[in-house]
Design a binder for these strands. Structure first.
Lengths: 355, 355
DNA sequence: ATTAGCACTCAAAAGAGGTGAGTGCTAACA
DNA sequence: TGTTAGCACTCACCTCTTTTGAGTGCTAAT
């Protein structure tokens, strides 16, 4: 059995209807609301075919039909219409741009808030992946007798810093000297590229106070392990799920919220790719229900996009919601917000590029 | 009618029973489980008295009784026994100490996690209130052509930093000069004490490039407004509420989780005091149901303690949960964890004290 | 003053129709 | 041959009723 134009139209109607109603869709309903020029009986027959083909499912015999993951996939790939952003959407996203937040975490927090408010789903953002950026500057600043601040800046202009305790008391002069040594030895490398050999080399070059290397190494390890760092994942609108009937069951709501609490898992869940325009810039990845690896996500969909600093995709943003998601709207909003993110980040950091 | 020993025993039994069962407590139940040497009929009479006096409430005529806020208050003030921390409690808390986290946010995140896991309630921590600490050092470090890092350290050793964009390009030498000027003018003041006059004074002392003052002022404003900063409140165990039958209703669960999402409100909610040992160090504050100002908290209880750096109470930690809370256990665990926090913070920062 | 006993209350669980949206199938029709 | 009207059938869900049982208040006896 093949998928004629008519079946496509009916499938599209069922998905569209189900996305707004959240109720199994019946043939009569489609016949009345969508002017397909067909009687309910014909639609009934076609829907039976669509069920056989795996695009629709029936919760029980006397209920209407619900799209399957395969049905949503077909809808997303071939059937859905482009959504035109509303004036309000455009305005809200634009005003986010105008806040001119020049702190990365604030920028992300704010963008996530905007995305979750516009879509009514849970927005997920990852912070720029720091470890793949080449080191431009490394700076050590004494804070007090027992601690100093390590500051790292990449070529892309992203900065990270951490206060570390000094293993023993050293003079500010020594710290400056050490700082210069690090800068000389590590500039141009990415964090990931720093090898044991490199560390040995630095150690050789130092005459004394090797201990001061340990907190620096700790910091580097910290950055490499950032998958496990809670601060690397930003969520907004976690309670939005309560707006959807699929989560009116307390068990499901709990499951979802506990999932969201587990940042490393979330990070993993959104880092895979499933792109329509594979590899291209501004590609959107959509994972529907069972297409997700994780069991807890088998009944959820995730839409993500990359955001860029220069040519490098440094982080992800997107939404998590029920498979019954308004894919068309969500995609457009994510596209627009990621475009703005790129623009803002370019303005903030681009001037550092390539030097 | 006054509150005899017998009434107290019965009230205590009802509260104890209700804390574990979450079901309205009947007279027969008490007569059987608690060896008070009284028949259910007698207990029934006493419970009727306790209801008249406002310590107990009846959901409906044919149900058992439930403690009122006043009942819990009496229990907390006079009736409850000291809970002895279990070996596991002590071990878990101790192992938290042994992690030697020397980054404040990590320390707090971890302590919150421990508290929420031990109590099974939602743990709330506030970051140390920075604006009341006297400035010890202020440092400006150039990051790249268009930005610099402002680093502030208080007498207590707490540090904050922020990357700010330079309004116009300035030389590193100028930044150093400006840095020294700020240090000279602002040392010893608390953030709150920095006045417009002071700013004018700094401006007078500068010959050029006044614009560089603006990002510094932004930073200071940021710190003063920290009530509104999401990062200043740490939560852990937000999904713990799903363990309690009072939140098996989706509406209530939602209400609670939306409340927790609103950090400024949470901060306000825990910052009031209601202490048993007013003003004394290590005092525990307990707010039961209606004793809370906020409507959303009228059916919840909050237990908090202060934590200290030196002599100053810099932040709060505690739990939020249903009024049917195991007060005795929660109090002990909070006490122990705050004691550890104090110890760790003393070791980390105390050496800065007073210089 | 305490308690056994009993009538009474009422939420919650269990059962019993009834309703209606929706289906699949058949036979008639264009 | 594809489409549709018609009809019997299914089944979740709603409502109404009944049953159950934990718990109470009151009274009379100890």
């Amino acid at each position: 059995m093949d998928m004629g134009e008519r079946k496509k139209k009916i499938l599209s109607s069922v998905v569209t209807e189900y996305i707004v109603s959240a109720e199994p869709v019946g043939s009569r309903n489609i016949a009345n609301k969508y002017n397909l020029g067909l009687s309910s009986a014909t639609i009934r027959n076609e829907m039976a075919d669509l069920e056989d083909m795996g695009y629709l499912e029936q919760p029980h015999t006397s209920a209407g039909r619900v799209p399957s993951d395969k049905g949503y996939r077909m809808y997303v790939n071939e059937l859905m219409n482009d959504y035109e952003l509303s004036v309000r959407d455009i305005k809200v996203i634009k005003s986010m741009m105008e806040l001119r937040l020049n702190q990365l975490d604030k920028l992300i927090t704010n963008a996530a808030k905007v995305l979750s408010e516009l879509t009514n789903y849970t927005a997920v953002f990852t912070a720029p992946e720091f470890k793949k950026g080449a080191i431009k500057t490394i700076e050590l600043v004494p804070i007090d007798e027992s601690s100093m601040l390590i500051i790292l800046v990449t070529n892309e202009g992203i900065m990270k810093n951490k206060r570390v305790m000094l293993p023993k008391s050293v003079t500010p002069e020594f710290i400056t000297k050490f700082s210069n040594l690090l800068k000389e030895k590590l500039s141009g490398l990415t964090i990931e590229e720093i090898s044991v050999g490199k560390i040995q080399e630095i150690k050789q070059a130092m005459q004394t106070n090797f201990e001061i290397l340990f907190p620096v190494l700790d910091f580097i390890t910290d950055i490499i392990d950032d998958v496990n760092k809670e601060t690397e994942v930003y969520l907004s609108g976690t309670t939005n799920i309560f707006n959807y009937p699929e989560y009116s069951d307390i068990g499901r709501a709990r499951e979802f919220l506990e999932l969201l609490d587990n940042k490393p898992v979330i990070k993993k869940a959104i880092s895979g790719n499933n792109e329509r325009r594979q590899g291209k810039k501004n590609a959107i990845s959509i994972k529907i229900g069972g297409e997700n690896e994780l069991d807890a996500l088998k009944n959820k969909s995730i839409i993500t996009a990359d955001y860029y600093i220069g040519e490098r995709a440094v982080g992800k943003l997107g939404v998590i919601g029920p498979t019954r998601m308004d894919y068309a709207k969500a995609v457009k909003r994510i596209e627009r917000i990621s475009a703005y993110m790129n623009k803002i980040l370019a303005e903030l950091y681009q001037n550092n590029k390539g030097d």
